[in-house]
Amino acid sequence: MNNTPVKHAAAPSVAALELHDLHKRFGRVRAVNGIDLTVEPGEIVAFLGPNGAGKTTTIDMMLGLSTPTAGDVTVFGFKPVDAVARGLVAAVMQTGGLLKDLTVGETVKLTSTLFVDTRPVDEVLQRAGILDIADRRVGKCSGGQQQRLRFAMALLSDPALLVLDEPTTGMDVEGRRDFWSAIREDTQRGRTVMFATHYLEEADAYADRIVLIRQGEVVADGTASEIKELSSGRTVRATLPGADPARLLTLPGVDGVEIRGDTILIRASESDSVARYLLTETNARDLEITARNLEEAFIALTSSDAPEAATKPAQHAESIRSAR
C-alpha cells in the first residue's frame, strides 16, 4: 500500500466530512434545509431518515454529484470533486448504473484505469466476494451481485471515506453479513464510513453514531442508545378487562392508549406513575414496562406529528453531541 496512514497523537486536524449550513432547493421544494454535520476520521455514521427526508440529496452533494443551493461541503478539507479525483472518497450509490455488456472483472479493470493509485483488481473482487464471477456479464448478475460490484469499484482507490447509499439493497442475509464484516475490517484501519439505510437493525448494529434526518434537517444525532433515550418514554402493558381509554388518557404524562381485547398498551413519559395508578386504583395485572426500541424511536422522531424533537432539532443534536 502506497498510502501508509499517519498516526496522530492528538486529535486529527481535519474532519473526514464537514457539512456547513447545507441547503438544496428544487424549485419550491426544500430537500435539504440547513444541515450542519462533522464526521471525524474513523467514525461509522448511519444516516437514517424516512423516504424523502433528503438523505440521497445530501449524499449527492457530499460526492459532488450536485451543487448545494447554499452552504458548503468539504471532504478531508477538499471540495467533493477534488476529493473524488484523489480517490479520497468513494461511494456505492443506488443510482449508479453499470454497463451490461461488460463482465464483472472488466468493469473493475476499466474503472481502475481512471485512478492514479489503485488496489489490485483481484483483491477488490475478492474483498467484495465476487472474484468467482469475474467473467460473468454484468447483465446476467443478480441485484445483490451488482451491488457487490459497485462495492468492489468503490474499494479500488482505497478511499479514506466510503459513502454508501442503501448499500445492502438486494443482498441476502448472508451477503449482508459478509458485506458488513468487510466494512468493519477497513474501519479498524482508519476508514470513515457514512451509510444511509432504512434497515434500522443495520444502523443499530454497525454504526457508532446515528444521524436522524427529517424534512431536510437533522432531528437527532448520537449513539443508538442515546437516540433511543431521546424519544423518551416507555410502554406500560397490562391486562385490564373493561378499561376506560378516556380515563387512562387523562393520567399525567400519557401520550397514547391502545386497547387490544383485555390488554392495554399505554405510551407514557411518566411510566412509573401510570404503573402506580394501574396497580393501586384498578384491577390491572401482568404489568410490564418496556423501553422503546430504536424503531419506535425512529418513528417517534421522524413522523410528521413528532413532538419537540422536530421543533428543536439543534438543541437536541447539540445536547447529545456534547454528552459524548
Binding site: T4, K7, P41, E43, F76, F115, D117, A160
Partner: peptide, 16 residues
C-alpha cells in the same frame, strides 16, 4: 470505539 487510536489517512494523493 472512542478508545481506539485515531488513524489519520494519508491525504497526499495524486490526481490523474
Amino acid at each position: 470505539m472512542s478508545a481506539q487510536p485515531v488513524v489519520m489517512p494519508d491525504l497526499n494523493r495524486r490526481v490523474p
